[in-house]
Simulated scan of single mutants.
Amino acid sequence: MTNQPYDGYQDGYGGHGGHDGYGGYDGQGGHDPYGQQQPQGAQAWPGQGQHGYPGHQGYEDPYAAQQYTQQWQGQTWETQTQQPVTAPAAADTAYLPQQGNEAPAPAPAEYGPATLAGNKRMTDAQRARAEGRSPIIEPGMQPAALTALLGLLLAGAAAVGTYALLVPLVALQAVTAAGWFRLNGMWPARQGIALGFAGALAADAALLVSGRSPSAILGTLGVWVLLALVLQLRSHADPDERMYGLMATVAASALAIVAGGYLAADAEAVTVGAVAVAVAVLARALPMPTAASVVVALLAGAGGGVVAGWLTGLGASGALLGVGAAGCALIGHRAASYDYPSRFVHFTAGVALPLSAAAPVVYVLGRALG
């Protein structure tokens, strides 16, 4: 940058038309350092030039260069020479399932690892759907054997008496509440499990007091839905989590309370229905295609209902009761197999849901056929 001085500039003590050391004004109308233009004809101090005081060398005026035209002699800034900024590749910022003929990566045991790019973790069921695999895993033969054992205990206890039936029934209701919460991915959910189990106990007590009237089940169910709603409204969790917890609590309470239908049903119907569920679940666990397994399970439930019907006095009508109980048991079995359940789910929900789901049918068909 160069300055073009005007004529008459002198570097001395008594110069005329110069600048003082504090950015003063010249005799022809100078420039004030505070941005004020001096009027024409103003005179400088006698003997004052570029330097402020005689005999003393002043500092260079920092504002002097502002009066002159500035010219750039260097190279200007060229924006075209800068390298363009490229966006990161999509493969580095997002999770994409493998495509083509490449073999899919093996799924982890619970969740996949979180990525640094902020991608959400995928559950095993979500990864199975993305890779075209089924998220359904059936409980297997061991949970089916436990279901059959519990069903036979219900059948034998019903033949003994009402209070004897309470022992396996209470165990069924407790496992139902715990298994449903774990099936929905909520664990530990001690408050919800305790609430559902307490509702089942309240329903059992109401049934005994009312002479095994089914209205006791409906009344207890209504009260427990209201109680679960009040407890969730007092929660400090997010709205989505509160809604999810409310639905899980209501469903667990409803299943545990509805299982009390065995206590309200006739003893003969309980025996026939429990035997049919036990036989159907064992047949469903046999290694065969799903469609064939369902048909075999329904036929086995009908056969078990006929045999138990002849033993209890229901006769051939036990076949209809057996088919209905077996169909509901298969629905509960399917629910316990959904969404990559854990081993704990198989040994809780997988054991209890077939029997709990069959309780309403056992009561209704038992009253209709009895």
Score class of each variant (00 low, 15 high):
residue 2 T to A: 15
residue 3 N to K: 15
residue 9 Y to M: 14
residue 10 Q to P: 00
residue 15 G to A: 13
residue 16 H to Q: 15
residue 26 D to S: 10
residue 31 H to Q: 09
residue 32 D to R: 05
residue 34 Y to E: 09
residue 35 G to P: 02
residue 37 Q to E: 11
residue 40 Q to Y: 07
residue 49 G to M: 06
residue 49 G to R: 08
residue 49 G to W: 08
residue 50 Q to T: 12
residue 53 Y to H: 14
residue 54 P to V: 08
residue 57 Q to F: 13
residue 62 P to V: 11
residue 63 Y to E: 12
residue 69 T to E: 15
residue 78 E to F: 11
residue 81 T to P: 04
residue 82 Q to F: 14
residue 89 A to N: 13
residue 90 A to P: 11
residue 97 P to A: 09
residue 99 Q to A: 11
residue 106 P to E: 03
residue 110 E to K: 09
residue 117 A to R: 07
residue 122 M to S: 05
residue 124 D to H: 01
residue 128 A to L: 10
residue 129 R to S: 12
residue 130 A to T: 09
residue 133 R to V: 07
residue 136 I to C: 14
residue 138 E to S: 12
residue 140 G to R: 05
residue 148 A to T: 00
residue 149 L to E: 05
residue 152 L to N: 00
residue 164 A to M: 08
residue 166 L to P: 04
residue 166 L to W: 07
residue 166 L to R: 04
residue 174 A to K: 10
residue 176 T to I: 08
residue 179 G to R: 07
residue 181 F to G: 09
residue 182 R to M: 10
residue 194 A to Q: 11
residue 195 L to C: 06
residue 195 L to A: 14
residue 202 A to N: 02
residue 208 L to V: 08
residue 216 A to W: 00
residue 216 A to P: 02
residue 226 L to G: 13
residue 228 A to N: 14
residue 230 V to N: 11
residue 231 L to Y: 11
residue 237 A to Y: 07
residue 244 Y to F: 14
residue 246 L to Y: 05
residue 247 M to R: 13
residue 247 M to T: 13
residue 248 A to C: 09
residue 248 A to W: 01
residue 250 V to D: 06
residue 253 S to F: 05
residue 256 A to I: 03
residue 257 I to K: 03
residue 262 Y to W: 04
residue 262 Y to I: 00
residue 262 Y to H: 01
residue 297 A to D: 02
residue 298 L to Q: 09
residue 299 L to M: 14
residue 299 L to G: 15
residue 300 A to N: 04
residue 306 V to L: 15
residue 316 A to Y: 08
residue 316 A to V: 13
residue 317 S to Q: 14
residue 324 G to P: 05
residue 329 A to T: 02
residue 330 L to Q: 03
residue 332 G to C: 04
residue 332 G to Q: 01
residue 332 G to D: 04
residue 334 R to Q: 13
residue 336 A to Y: 02
residue 345 V to T: 07
residue 346 H to L: 02
residue 347 F to I: 01
residue 356 S to E: 05
residue 357 A to Y: 15
residue 360 P to H: 01
residue 361 V to N: 04
residue 362 V to H: 03
residue 364 V to R: 07
residue 369 L to S: 05
